[in-house]
Design a protein around this nucleic acid. Sequence first.
DNA 1: CCGTTCTTTCAATAAATTTTGAAAATTCAG
DNA 2: CTGAATTTTCAAAATTTATTGAAAGAACGG
Lengths: 168, 168
Amino acid sequence: MKLAEAKLQFIASWGAFGTHWGINRTMAQIHALLLVSADPLNQDDIMEELNISRGNVNMNIRELIDWALVERVIVPGERKEFFTAEKDIWKVARLIVKERKKRELDPMLKLLDQLKEVEGDKKDKHVKQFTDTVAGIKRFGEQADKMLDVMVKADENWFVGSLMKFFK
Amino acid sequence: MKLAEAKLQFIASWGAFGTHWGINRTMAQIHALLLVSADPLNQDDIMEELNISRGNVNMNIRELIDWALVERVIVPGERKEFFTAEKDIWKVARLIVKERKKRELDPMLKLLDQLKEVEGDKKDKHVKQFTDTVAGIKRFGEQADKMLDVMVKADENWFVGSLMKFFK
DNA sequence: CCGTTCTTTCAATAAATTTTGAAAATTCAG
DNA sequence: CTGAATTTTCAAAATTTATTGAAAGAACGG
């Protein structure tokens, strides 16, 4: 397989993959393109490679920068802005976990905290089922939260090393 | 907060949550409703509680059954089909991980295997960046794959117990 | 400053996804 | 079997989400 073809395949698949992970297709494709590009690209490069509009590139690049997956770089002698992606895949994973934890898990745990205070007779089976379910999810969520925190804070080598040992 | 209100809140939030996790809003809402219901419900119950059409309930229930998150139950003396959700949240998490691993991670790893065979001079920095990126993602993916396999196969107590100890 | 280049915004449009509901298929009791 | 009850299907409609592109805004060199 030729490089150009492989690149296209990778970008297409990473884009599809992204949609399953709370990242939109184009954002994931731009990310993919930058991941496999040796040098920083500017907006026009990205527009051309992915056949998308300037506005689209701009918005999604900004979103990637928000996630800290991409950063602006200054290329000496160039007026335009250039962009590169964080290439260390473990760091990428940690950034994604961190962001999604903040956006999804944390608010859910906060809500569950409120919901467990439901009024009513704890003997009533409907009340009981509700509070039991909420409590169960909360316990699980807190566990996950703790585990992800360790992952986000850990440095790669420690994390991989420990998990390797742990999982035989 | 009253039970009815709390239920609605829980269902709405679980639905929104679901959309971030590759599950569609209605499917997640039906799941939520069944999670907090003490008794099995039939299609009409669900239509009424969530204000959605029969076709919608039917399709999403079927999908939930595919994921093994919901099962049909026979209620003696009733002609209609009834449904309950798996209530053990750890089992639920394992079922979701299992399904998503199959649908997303496994195909991605297969693709990366092909992409690392790209032709061309390994000294060329563009080829090198591509193969390095692909190899890095592949290594990461295999790690995740192994870890998730352990999780899927493990029984809850072992898993929680071990993780608790591991993460202090 | 001024004109040019580049970036950002956002209303309009397009595309993708979800939902409906009525018709077809199936199931089941008598 | 028969016909009523129930489930399933799926094309059309509604809704949601993503994309465009032109106009406004910033930044910069001279």
